[in-house]
Amino acid sequence: MNMSTAFVLTIVIALGTYLLRAVPALLLADRELPVPVQRALRNVGPAVLAALVVVSVASTADGGIEVEVAEVAALVAAGVVAWWRRNLIWSLLAGMAALWVTLVLV
């Protein structure tokens, strides 16, 4: 791929990425959204992040679904510690520790 084609391609994708992030906020900012819609939008964070986690550990490159024991152990440990300590660093350390321990044991 030559330099100019590659550059134009990345600029188009950059513009598209920006528009995905900007258009809803720009269009909706000055409108009073119906209360049910406002309520629905409150849970976007937990919903998107939960889906992101599941897809990133469960999907395989060839379009299959596969779950690895060590990854599940890591996520469970991270979740339990996050609930208990309310602290992201401890949660991350616990998750990675559980991952490595399980990889060694299983």
């Binding site: 550990v57 991270a78 992201l88 991350l92 990675m96």
Partner: peptide, 20 residues
């Protein structure tokens, strides 16, 4: 796997209300 582990922690911390 680290990003998925981190996002798990973030989700759990954000679960302060039953609809979440």
């Amino acid at each position: 796997v680290a990003p998925a582990v981190m996002f798990t922690g973030m989700v759990v911390i954000s679960l302060t209300r039953s609809p979440a």
